[in-house]
Amino acid sequence: MLSLTLTGLNLKNPLMLAAGIMGTTGDSLKRMALAGAGAVVTKSIGTEPRSGHSNPSMVEVDCGYLNAMGLPNPSYKNFQDEIDRAREGEVPVIASIFGGCSLDFSEIAKSLNADAFELNVSCPHAHGYGAEIGTDHALVEDITHAVKTAVNVPVWVKLTPNVTDIKGIGLAAQHGGADAVVAINTVRGMAIDIESGYPILGNKFGGLSGRAIKPVAIKCVYDLYEVLDIPVIGVGGATDWKDAVEFIMAGAKAVQIGSAVGNNINIFDDISSCMEAFLEEKEWTLDDIYGMAHEI
């Protein structure tokens, strides 16, 4: 009842592990697949190894989490074995990749064997990468086009909410040939220690994730659904089955879950079973609720 086809990939349910959570090793990705995720997304991988920002790099706040990891990763040259290991979970494995230009992105994509690629043009706290690229329509279109012409698998573009109009960025990705967009990455935020007056994070500011950003993500998904011809994948603050249903009603074809995994490793199975019961009670299907909020 929950199975679907998304950009040519067969998913047993519309729930995915979001990039950056349990995505550094093949074993952790496999664990999430076996725990019920319909697909898994790796940690963002770049051209060269990065250690990331100095600690503290993550802090819990009242409304979620602030993180400024700084895109730590072993580089694509040392990551194919992890993707191969993750495939033992028998769900699609999507490689999240980042770079400073279209050549970086295409180099990584051509070198990795994954079921799809998610282009990270939205990380809010890494200088020269992520949102510094993803706020430029021309760069987003160019990078998307470069990767799309380099590979024969689906290409998704993960968008930043830290723009005045996310629809324009989504259209740029679509013009570049994206098969889907992912909305959203974290929202820029900051926390200060009042005893010392210093910013808590080593990078001073970071990205806010967790339940607080769900309304922002829902609105972004809703707006993108209205203007795009390609699927939107929702992410940001989903913690239970009601959140997943809300994302789909807003126009998300699938929903990624990140921060909430830290509190419940079985969250994918929990949400799937509750969603299925809800749909059965209402005598609805996934297609029935997909974009339902736009019919009002």
Rank of each mutant, 00 (worst) to 15 (best):
L2T: 07
P14W: 05
A18T: 02
A19M: 09
I21N: 02
T25Y: 04
K30P: 10
K30D: 05
L34F: 13
V41I: 13
I45P: 09
T47P: 05
H53E: 13
N55C: 04
N55E: 02
S57D: 14
D62M: 15
C63F: 15
A68K: 07
D81S: 14
D81L: 11
E82H: 03
R85H: 05
R87Q: 10
E90K: 06
V91L: 11
I94G: 05
I94M: 07
A95I: 09
G99H: 12
L103F: 05
S106F: 04
S106E: 12
N113S: 12
A114K: 07
D115Y: 07
E118Q: 05
V121Y: 10
C123M: 06
P124L: 00
H127Q: 14
D142L: 14
I143A: 06
W156R: 09
W156V: 10
L159P: 06
T160V: 05
G170F: 13
A178Y: 10
V182Q: 01
V182C: 11
A183T: 11
M190L: 13
I194Q: 03
P199G: 04
P199K: 03
N203K: 10
K204H: 13
K204P: 09
A212G: 00
V216T: 04
I218N: 05
I218Q: 01
I218S: 08
C220W: 03
Y222P: 00
P231K: 05
P231F: 08
V232S: 04
G236I: 00
G237D: 11
T239D: 01
F247A: 01
G251N: 00
A252W: 04
A252D: 06
I257Q: 02
I257V: 11
S259H: 13
G262L: 10
G262D: 08
F268L: 05
D270F: 00
I271P: 00
I271C: 07
S272K: 03
E276R: 09
A277Q: 09
E280Q: 14
W284S: 04
W284I: 00
